[in-house]
């Protein structure tokens, strides 16, 4: 088992309740859930790899492929929808040449949608890495993306 995953596992007890917190930690560390991680978790928690995959694929948070260097999350909450969030997403899909949930070929951006970032009064919002940008427009977003390598 690679060291980091062992370190993650040892922070948790071996109860099945810890499955999702462990997956969250693994994703925080590696950016995604690899087959190898699933194997390690399976042995530790005594839950089959298939079950772990079944659980993790249920939740929108977990991904199974390597993420891009920057994550772009478009909020599609109601307020954002009413104020054009979907247009932003579409523009991004076209501009970056990927679908939602995918990573650009150069691994620069990973595009995702989120149900709601809770900043509805400032809609539409887009989150790039940890920063939330409010009252976004197609053109401002295009400019903003240029700042990321």
């Amino acid at each position: 088992m690679p060291e980091p995953i062992r370190t993650i596992l040892e922070k948790h007890s071996r109860e099945p309740d810890e499955l999702i917190p462990i997956l969250q930690d693994v994703q925080k560390e590696y950016g995604y859930i690899s087959a190898e991680s699933v194997k390690g978790i399976s042995k530790y928690l005594r839950i089959s790899e298939n079950t772990i995959y079944g659980v993790s694929s249920f939740y929108a948070q977990f991904r199974f492929t390597e993420p891009g260097r920057h994550s772009v999350k478009v909020c599609l909450g109601t307020a954002c929808h009413v104020r054009g969030g979907a247009t932003l997403l579409e523009m991004l899909e076209r501009g970056l040449g990927v679908h939602c949930g995918e990573t650009t070929e150069d691994k620069r951006f990973g595009l995702e949608r989120v149900a709601c970032l809770g900043c509805c009064a400032l809609s539409p919002v887009v989150q790039i890495d940890k920063e939330i940008f409010s009252r976004m427009t197609v053109n401002r977003l295009t400019e903003q993306l240029k700042e990321y390598e």
Partner: peptide
């Protein structure tokens, strides 16, 4: 788990 899009009272 305030999931309703457009709601942020709990947050």
């Amino acid at each position: 788990d305030e999931g309703d899009p457009g709601a942020f009272m709990n947050r």
